[in-house]
């Protein structure tokens, strides 16, 4: 399991479209070979087919696809957008934090989601993620295990 390690977090990324944001967040997973290229396309296709339902909370999107779309290991990456982008969600737009989830079929998938819920279930953590000036500040939020 890889959860928001330093190489999986990128701050102040410039994008103008939701698809671009999904691809950028996916690229961080791909760089570490946690997913295959086709998983990124599957995330984008899911957005185009099912809409922005994965914008789970104000400012927060959690794009993902299925394990069979090419996942090597359960993981989450994060890109923080320089300028928030509209995904078309009625109440949670615009999005600034994009967490790409590599959904595996293993037990680790649940552990990754639980860690994510712990982090994002606390509004203070969300505002710290939005204002963090360096990866170190984010690392402290996730318990320094990145």
């Amino acid at each position: 399991m890889k959860f928001l390690e330093e190489s999986l977090v990128a701050l102040d990324i410039e994008v103008s479209q939701p698809e671009e944001a999904i691809r950028e967040a996916g690229k961080l997973l791909l760089n570490l070979e946690l997913i295959e290229q086709q998983y990124i396309e599957a995330m984008v296709a899911s957005f185009q087919k099912n809409g922005p339902y994965f914008v789970l909370a104000p400012k927060i999107a959690l794009p993902h696809a299925r394990p069979e779309d090419g996942v090597a290991e359960a993981a989450v990456s994060l890109i923080r957008l320089n300028e928030p982008v509209r995904f078309g969600h009625a109440s949670n737009d615009p999005v600034q934090l994009v967490f790409a989830l590599a959904a595996s079929s293993s037990e680790e998938h649940l552990q990754v989601l639980q860690k994510l819920m712990q982090l994002l279930g606390d509004e203070n953590n969300v505002s710290k993620l939005l204002s963090a000036k360096s990866y170190q500040e984010i690392n402290q939020l996730i318990g320094g295990n990145g």
Binding site: S46, K49, N50, G51, Y53, F54, L56, L62, H64, A65, R66, P67, L101, A103, H109, L110, L113, Q114, L116, M117, G121
Partner: peptide, 15 residues
Amino acid sequence: VCGLGQGTSLILKMN
């Protein structure tokens, strides 16, 4: 219920 039944709906289920 979510689009894929993998991540989002699982988070919702746990909460």
